[in-house]
């Protein structure tokens, strides 16, 4: 008798709390703020312009450049082989197979790094992997690859080495006439979404 009374009160109180608490939807894939902070501090989500340029020269299929600027900006100028996913369309279902995948390294870029960083944070928070940022964005790309500054004599030997390599890159990206063409921008089709692992249950 007494147990029923106590249990009833406890259950109703807990039920009231449960009813007052806001609805919440957890996703096991998502990262919390602390984990995200850790990753940001590690800074290994950055890809340098040199690394990217080398990858492009070598036609490395591991890298997928993703332009997160607007469509107009993308049409005006873009890096070779880049895919345009404008910021506001980031979480469109159609793009999900490109940003939530495990096969390639996605390299986000914008003019500076602000927009690309925002995109990276959003995707990382969702738990998507293999996403990176082009360090310094297009501005840095232009300054480093397309218009490298000759080092002064006091700079180390390494600087000269880099400079020579960059001249070669410049030759590659400008010498062949079309530094960045939009001709290879194909309208990508949506791909069926991969599903989360589901559990069986009940009595079947």
């Amino acid at each position: 008798m007494k147990i029923r009374f106590v249990l009833s009160i406890v259950l109703v109180c807990l039920g009231l709390v449960a009813a007052i608490l806001p609805q919440r939807q957890n996703s096991s894939m998502e990262l919390d703020a602390k984990q995200l902070l850790n990753e940001i501090q590690l800074e290994n989500y950055m890809i340098s312009v040199d690394e990217m340029a080398n990858a492009l020269i070598n036609n490395d299929p591991e890298y997928q450049l993703i332009d997160v600027r607007s469509e107009e900006a993308f049409k005006a100028y873009s890096l070779p082989g880049a895919l345009n996913i404008p910021f506001e369309k980031l979480f469109d279902e159609a793009w999900a197979p490109y940003i939530d995948q495990v096969a390639r390294k996605n390299v986000f870029y914008s003019n500076g790094t602000t927009l690309a960083s925002e995109v990276w944070m959003l995707t990382r928070q969702k738990g998507f992997k293999n996403n990176y940022i082009l360090r310094g964005g297009l501005n840095n790309w232009y300054a480093t690859v397309l218009d490298p500054k000759e080092p002064v004599a006091t700079d180390g030997e390494e600087a000269f080495f880099d400079y020579r390599a960059r001249l070669g890159m410049k030759q590659f990206f400008t010498g062949e006439g079309t530094p960045a063409s939009t001709s290879n921008v194909k309208a990508k089709k949506p791909v069926p979404r991969r599903k989360k692992k589901m559990v069986a249950g009940g009595c079947s």
Binding site: L11, L14, A18, L21, R24, N26, M198, V199, G202
Partner: peptide
């Protein structure tokens, strides 16, 4: 009913505390 309610409340609170992803838990068809 005590068992069903205990488990139900447990799942509600676990979900609120971010301890369980309810989208994976089996819901009978």
């Amino acid at each position: 009913f005590t068992a069903a309610i205990t488990a139900m409340l447990g799942l509600l609170f676990m979900n609120y505390l971010g301890m369980i992803d309810m989208s994976i838990v089996y819901v009978n068809e």
